[in-house]
C-alpha cells in the first residue's frame, strides 16, 4: 500500500548517498543563478527556490537538521527591512523612491552593484521563506 512505500522511500540508502553527492552542486548552482541574475536568465526568486530545494534534500540525510524556526523567520524579517532600506536610498540621491540609487549618467559597471546586492538579498529571503514553509510541514505531523 501507499504508506509503506513512502516509509521505505525515506530510509533508502541509495537516496541518501545520491543526496549527499548532489547537495553541494545544487547549492553552487543556486548561488550561480543568483549572482549572475543580471547577465543570464534567472535572478533572486529562481535562485532562491533552487537553494531551498538543496536544503530540502538534506532532510533525506538528517531529518532533525533544522530545529529553530523562530530564528529563520527573524532573519527573514531583517532581510525584508534591508531590501526596503536599499530600495529607499534613492530618495536621498534622486528624490524618487524605489529605483537605482546610482545616478543615470554613471557607467554600467557601478550600476551593477545595486542589481547584484538586491538579487542576493531577495534570493536569501526567498530561500529562508520556503525552508520555513516545509519545515513547518515536517514538524506538523511529528507531534
Amino acid at each position: 500500500m501507499i504508506y509503506e512505500e513512502v516509509i521505505t522511500l525515506k530510509t533508502s540508502r541509495i537516496l541518501i548517498c545520491i543526496s549527499r553527492l548532489l547537495y553541494p552542486f545544487m547549492l553552487l548552482f543556486g548561488f550561480y543563478i543568483i549572482i549572475n541574475g543580471h547577465t543570464s536568465p534567472g535572478g533572486g526568486f529562481q535562485g532562491g527556490a533552487i537553494l531551498a530545494t538543496a536544503i530540502l534534500i538534506t532532510y533525506f540525510i538528517d531529518p532533525d537538521r533544522i530545529t529553530n524556526l523562530n530564528l529563520l523567520i527573524k532573519i527573514e524579517k531583517v532581510l525584508f527591512i534591508l531590501i526596503l532600506v536599499i530600495g529607499s536610498i534613492s530618495f536621498f540621491t534622486k528624490n524618487v523612491f524605489f529605483t537605482n540609487f546610482i545616478s543615470i549618467e554613471s557607467s554600467t559597471t557601478y550600476k551593477k552593484i545595486f542589481l547584484i546586492a538586491l538579487n542576493f538579498f531577495i534570493g536569501i529571503k526567498v530561500a529562508l521563506g520556503l525552508v520555513t514553509v516545509f519545515s513547518t510541514f515536517i514538524k506538523e505531523g511529528r507531534s
Binding site: K10, I33, G42, Q46, L56, E140, G141
Partner: peptide, 26 residues
C-alpha cells in the same frame, strides 16, 4: 526565467511537500 522558477517550485518543492504531508499522517 519563468521556466527556471517553474522547474524549481513546481516539480521539486510542491511534490516533496505533498509527499511529506502524506507520509506524516500519524
Amino acid at each position: 526565467d519563468v521556466a527556471l522558477a517553474e522547474v524549481a517550485i513546481g516539480s521539486a518543492i510542491m511534490p516533496l511537500i505533498f509527499i511529506i504531508s502524506i507520509s506524516r499522517q500519524r
